[in-house]
């Protein structure tokens, strides 16, 4: 899996409450989450996420286990999320819903500039420099390749 998108820069310790607030969780309508994703951080951000690669600081996705957080990012059009470290539940959830998450140190972020990634070859490219990403476990790679845990299970049956 590979791709290129425009960079959207986020700081460290972005919690899942700020990704999608509790007040929007009383629904199964994914478009609601996509519309309000990261609203409390920057109300103008959601429309800029289509085709974006998020470059976040460490501990991305900490806090609540709400799976609506990676779903909201994916539904809003985010291609991948890159960070030096992720909170573990968010990391699992993202893979399970088919949103590529890439652990990679030192990736600089300039908003709007292109960021490329290859999960198969394990790298991120930004500002003309290539950074080595930490590989996913075999199982997580399989789940992501299937497009998420639901598809992985359906294929297994």
């Amino acid at each position: 899996m590979e791709g290129t998108g425009h960079a959207v820069c986020l700081g460290p310790d972005i919690d899942t409450d700020i990704i999608i607030a509790g007040r929007y969780l009383r629904t199964k309508d994914r478009s609601v989450w996509a519309e309000h994703v990261l609203e409390d951080l920057d109300p103008a951000l959601a429309p800029r996420l289509r085709g974006a690669v998020i470059v976040a600081g460490r501990n991305m996705g900490c806090g609540s286990s709400r799976e609506q957080a990676p779903v909201a990012l994916k539904e809003a059009g985010v291609l991948a999320v890159i960070a030096p470290s992720f909170a573990r539940i968010f990391f699992r959830n993202a893979i399970n819903v088919g949103l590529p998450v890439i652990e990679c140190d030192g990736v600089p972020c300039t908003a709007g500039e292109p960021v490329a990634f290859s999960l198969d070859e394990g790298w991120v490219k930004a500002g003309g420099v290539r950074y080595n990403a930490r590989p996913l476990s075999v199982r997580m790679q399989e789940i992501l390749d299937a497009g998420g845990l639901v598809n992985y299970w359906r294929a297994k049956e």
């Binding site: 609540s64 286990s65 799976e67 539940i89 699992r92 959830n93 399970n96 819903v97 845990l149 299970w153």
Partner: peptide
């Protein structure tokens, strides 16, 4: 739920996951 680690107080391995992991 992320606070599922609470039950570790009993000497259990208790941890939180998301909804699709729970479905599996």
């Amino acid at each position: 739920d992320s606070h599922s680690c609470t039950a570790g107080a009993f000497g259990a391995f208790a941890t939180g996951v998301g909804a699709t992991d729970m479905a599996a």
